[in-house]
Write a protein that binds this DNA or RNA. Structure first.
Lengths: 362, 362
DNA sequence: TCGCCTTTCTGAAACGTTTCAGATAAACAC
DNA sequence: GTGTTTATCTGAAACGTTTCAGAAAGGCGA
């Protein structure tokens, strides 16, 4: 008796049918209390751990979990507060119905292996911020299970939840030019899956494979050009990742250019924190010598020194919303819908009027 | 043809045996390249998404995922940087072998429902920091799958990974009394599952259901009593959770007592950040008027203002180690072992000598 | 030409459940 | 005493795979 006991073995031991043992676990009203007690007792004695989830799932056609797809390695994702907030919201939705969250690694080996996706024991997928043509997205869609996409990529007929990235980006940029800043610098996370560190020219900006990145750049550009400046003169530094260290490197590069930027706009709070570090180590006061903005408004943004001016976006609600949309589909109610969540410019103390008195329109 | 196509249907359509279709997916060398191509092509045409993971798992007896058990709601866990770091390490281990991570909610309804555990499609469990007598731990153990416990609870015969909490706590406390501090205050997270906010007397301290909490208090007490002070005089404020806000409330309570503490020791960096906020809002300078220590050394601890003196513990490696131990068991190699990871006192700028000149031994 | 490998494919038996249409017997109404 | 419920329990058919012992057919050396 090396292997774990099975329902059939318990039935044999007791001399009852397997259906009865199954009922003891699943439908207590279908058998007498006395027999049920005997069944459970025998099971306990035999070390039967209860119905096997795989077998049950096969029969019932449900896995009891939903899969979450990330860009990057799983280990990377946890390092990003924004993603963690999203997961937090998502988990609120799944907890309500007792579903587990299966976090799926996109990169076990060198290249991304769709087998992880096609072999995942799940009832549906949430795709979180992946590249337009990522094969994993294709694999998930190919499973013909309910899918919800958050942030990107947008796909015809697939429910979607996100924000107005262009509008939000434009709002921060307008805030800065409104303060009189004319020498700007941009710090972005990846524009395309192929990771690059360095200044991204107009061409690379145009070719951005991430709609989110593309839209934000567009928003910045719109605000800049509305003041009569040339967007081509604004240096855009692309970081290979979203860690503060990356932002620091980017800022160091931008701040050693001539003319030195008086304001730096980052694509995320994480990157903005790195920019702050760079400023500190270069003895530039924030916001005196340099204004800095982030994006996301993660909790740390309120606690940083100085507190960060940033764009609030409802990460938790985004996750919650994605979860609810998926659950609706699982219940068979779901007709593809899209949801654009509101953002809000959060003014704190990392931005101030430009020192060089640049007359601003009143 | 409303339901998804199955392997059998593909076989029928082609007039080959099901075994052959299965082989086309799993053992390409078992059939001619030409036939394989025909099979795959037909599958594509019929919209067959590939072998069903549940059925495959049942047959192969493996789920392709490992379950992670948390104290608290899943949504809570994500808010704690230390847990996130642990997960990060764990995911590194599982990614290597293409296993998914199934995050299991402990609290779908009011009370904790073991059904989530007994129904989880997993090959093993990692238990992360749970209460001694939590029913979910029992449920996981009852599944008779490989299990690894991180931090708590320790169970005979179950592989374990953790740190020397008592020793580490003693080290921070010794640092502070060494600086001359004699009026201390403690901010702890939960001592027992029943959540309480407020001063915890000696009795409640002794009854702590969390070994981690108990050990840390013991470490603090040892250092305090070694200086001839009475531990009973040191106020211990227990927080119902690990959020910065809680730490802030606790600190406000402690700092309005007489005599006002000159140093506060927190059980986590998160709580310590809250203590810093409280000090700031009460116009106390850190470390001038108040020394503060944390525990964990999360990345933010180095970026806080002032940078936090704390105990480094290797969260990521803890997760990695737990993962590796579990994988070893899955491969059938694992004999129960325990691993105690090293910690290190990280001195930064949130602690300074006590102002009241208390002669310290030289 | 004969035996013996290979290669390629088939058929059927698991894997461990749930579910559903009955069978049996006791209880009930009249 | 007959017909109708009701409460329990049985048997067997799925669920969608994988795997394994062969069968059929061709290739090869002697």
């Amino acid at each position: 008796m090396s292997r774990r006991a099975t329902l059939t073995q318990v039935a044999e031991e007791l001399g009852v049918s397997v259906g009865t043992v199954s009922n003891a676990y699943n439908r207590p009203d279908q058998l007498s209390a006395a027999l049920r007690e005997r069944v459970l007792e025998t099971a306990r004695r035999m070390g039967y751990p209860g119905p096997d989830p795989l077998a049950r799932g096969l029969r019932r056609r449900r896995a009891g979990a939903i899969g979450v797809l990330y860009e990057d390695r799983l280990s990377h994702a946890f390092a990003d507060p924004a993603e963690v907030l999203f997961l937090q919201g998502l988990s609120v939705a799944t907890e309500e119905v007792g579903l587990g969250l299966l976090l799926l690694s996109g990169a076990p080996g060198e290249e991304r292996d769709p087998a992880v996706i096609s072999g995942a024991v799940v009832d549906g997928f949430v795709v979180y911020s992946m590249a337009e043509e990522d094969p994993l997205v294709g694999a998930a869609l190919g499973r013909r299970l309910p899918v919800v996409v958050a942030d990107q990529p947008r796909r015809e007929g697939v429910p979607y939840v996100g924000i107005d990235d262009e509008g939000a980006a434009r709002a921060v940029a307008e805030h800065l030019v409104g303060l009189g800043h004319r020498r700007l610098g941009i710090v972005t996370f990846a524009l395309s899956p192929r990771l690059v560190d360095g200044i991204a020219g107009l061409e690379r900006q145009r070719d951005a494979a991430y709609p989110v990145s593309r839209d934000r750049l567009r928003g910045f550009a719109a605000a800049v050009e509305a003041t009569g400046l040339d967007w081509a003169d604004v240096p855009v530094y692309e970081c290979a990742g979203n860690a503060p260290e990356r932002g620091r490197e980017a800022a160091e590069a931008l701040l050693s250019r001539e003319p030195r930027p008086s304001a730096i706009l980052a694509f995320s709070d994480q990157l903005a924190f790195g920019v702050m570090e760079a400023a500190r180590s270069m003895n530039l006061s924030v916001p005196g010598d340099l204004s800095i903005t982030g994006f996301d408004d993660v909790p740390e943004a309120a606690r940083s020194v100085p507190p960060l001016t940033t764009v609030y976006q409802p990460h938790v609600e985004k996750g919650l919303s994605a979860g609810r949309m998926l659950l609706a589909q699982l219940r068979g109610e779901g007709h593809p819908v899209s949801e654009i969540l509101p953002t809000r410019l959060t003014l704190r103390s990392s931005t101030a009027p430009s020192k060089k008195p640049a007359r601003r329109p009143r």
